[in-house]
C-alpha cells in the first residue's frame, strides 16, 4: 500500500463564467474555489465546513471530476488526475466514490435499488450475474437493509434508507475515499444518528477516508478528524478537530462557532458574538481578506492584501493577518 495521501489538492481553482447579454458573452466569473490546498490521509475524515456559496460543494464535484478544475492539481493516491479526459479518468473512479445530500434525487427513480447499488460493480467488471446479486445482497446487509429490498424502487424507501442505498453504492467498489456532500442534512435527527454511526463504522472497518462536506458544526465535530473552514472560495483555517474547537484562530471560525446553536439552554447566557451583515456574493468578493467586511478585528492591511494560509503551529493553518506571531496563544481565541 502506498504511503501517499489518498487525496491531495494543490492550489485548486474553479471559476464559473457568468454569461450575459444577448449573445451570452462572458461578463464575469464566480470564483467558487479560489486556490485551495489540502490532503487527506488513508482512513481519515477531513471536514469542509462553511456557509452556502463558500465553494465546499464545488470542491467535492471538482475532486470527483464531475466538473473540470480551472487550475490546480488533484492527486489521487499520488497520481495527477486533474487534466485527465473523461475516458482516462474512468479507471480512477473506482478509488473515489460519492454520497449526495438529497437522498430523493440521488437515486434514479426508474431503476430497482439493487440495480443501482450494483451498477459500479457492473461498470468496472468486478462482478456479474449471480455473483453480482450476491455481492449486492451483502452490501444491503452491511448498510442495514434487508437484501429482499433489492427489487424495490427508490420511492419505496424512507429518507434514511435511501441514504443507506447511496452508501452501499459508494461502498460497492471498495474505494479509498468517499466524498460525502451534506449526507445527513436532509435527514431527521433520529435517522441522522443512524447514518452517522454507519459512516463511522464503515470507516473503521474498511479504512475509508472521507471528504465530509457540511454546514453543521456539531456533525463536523462528531465525525471529522481534521476540519477546514471555508469562506468565499478560500480555506481560512485548517486544523485538527480539537484545535479548531478549543483554540481556533480565525475570526470567521469564531463567528461560526458562536452563531451555532446547541441543545443546552444554559448556553444562552454566554456572550454571543454575532457577526453582522451578509456573506458577499462570490461573483464580487471583497478585495484583500474576503472576511474583512464582517470582521470585528479587521485592520487596514486586511482590506487590500489577501492573507496566505500559514502553518502557525504543527498542523494548524490560518489565513489571517492578525494571527499570533510564532504560534502562541491567540488574543481572539475563546473556548466554546
Amino acid at each position: 500500500m502506498s504511503t501517499a495521501p489518498v487525496l491531495e489538492v494543490q492550489g485548486l481553482v474553479k471559476h464559473f463564467p457568468i454569461l450575459g447579454g444577448l449573445l451570452q458573452r462572458r461578463v464575469g466569473e464566480v470564483r467558487a474555489v479560489d486556490g485551495v490546498s489540502f490532503s487527506i490521509a488513508r482512513g481519515e475524515t477531513l471536514g469542509l465546513v462553511g456557509e452556502s456559496g463558500c465553494g465546499k460543494s464545488t470542491i467535492g464535484k471538482v475532486v470527483l471530476k464531475l466538473i473540470e478544475p480551472t487550475a490546480g492539481r488533484i492527486l489521487l493516491g499520488g497520481e495527477d488526475v486533474s487534466s485527465l479526459k473523461p475516458g482516462a479518468m474512468w479507471a480512477h473512479r473506482r478509488r473515489i466514490q460519492t454520497i449526495f445530500q438529497d437522498p430523493y434525487s440521488a437515486l434514479n427513480p426508474r431503476l430497482p435499488s439493487g440495480t443501482l447499488v450494483g451498477e459500479p460493480l457492473e461498470n468496472f467488471g468486478l462482478a456479474r450475474g449471480a455473483e453480482l446479486g450476491e455481492r449486492v445482497a451483502k452490501l444491503f446487509e452491511r448498510v442495514g437493509l434487508r437484501p429482499d429490498a433489492m427489487r424495490k424502487f427508490a420511492h419505496e424507501f424512507s429518507g434514511g434508507q435511501r441514504q443507506r442505498l447511496g452508501i452501499a453504492k459508494a461502498l460497492s467498489v471498495n474505494p479509498d475515499l468517499i466524498v460525502a456532500d451534506e449526507p445527513v442534512s436532509a435527514l431527521d435527527v433520529s435517522v441522522q444518528a443512524q447514518v452517522l454511526n454507519l459512516l463511522i463504522d464503515l470507516q473503521e472497518e474498511y479504512g475509508l477516508a472521507y471528504l465530509f462536506i457540511s454546514h453543521d458544526l456539531a456533525v463536523m465535530r462528531h465525525i471529522s478528524h481534521r476540519i477546514a473552514v471555508m469562506y468565499l472560495g478560500r480555506i481560512v483555517e485548517l486544523t485538527t478537530k480539537r484545535a479548531l474547537f478549543e483554540g481556533h484562530l480565525h475570526p470567521y471560525t469564531e463567528a461560526l462557532l458562536s452563531a451555532a446553536t446547541a441543545p443546552d439552554p444554559a448556553r444562552r447566557k454566554r456572550r454571543r458574538r454575532i457577526v453582522q451583515g451578509d456573506v458577499p456574493s462570490p461573483a464580487k468578493p471583497p478585495p484583500g481578506c474576503h472576511f474583512h467586511t464582517r470582521c470585528p478585528y479587521a485592520i487596514a492591511e486586511c482590506r487590500t492584501l489577501a492573507p496566505p494560509l500559514i502553518e502557525v503551529a504543527p498542523g494548524h493553518h490560518v489565513a489571517c493577518h492578525r494571527r499570533p506571531v510564532g504560534g502562541g496563544p491567540h488574543p481572539l481565541s475563546t473556548t466554546v
Binding site: V189, S190, Q192, A193, Q194, L196, N197, I200, D216, L217, A218, V219, R221, H222, I223, K241, R242, F245, L257, A260, T261, A262, P263, D264, R267, V336
Partner: peptide, 25 residues
C-alpha cells in the same frame, strides 16, 4: 432519544479523541 441522537457541538468526544456512538432511535 432525540437528545441523545444529536451530535453535540458543545461536548468533546472523549479524551482519546474517539468518536462516541450516537444513540439511534
Amino acid at each position: 432519544g432525540l437528545m441523545r441522537a444529536i451530535p453535540r457541538l458543545d461536548i468533546e468526544a472523549d479524551t482519546a479523541g474517539r468518536r462516541p456512538r450516537l444513540q439511534e432511535i
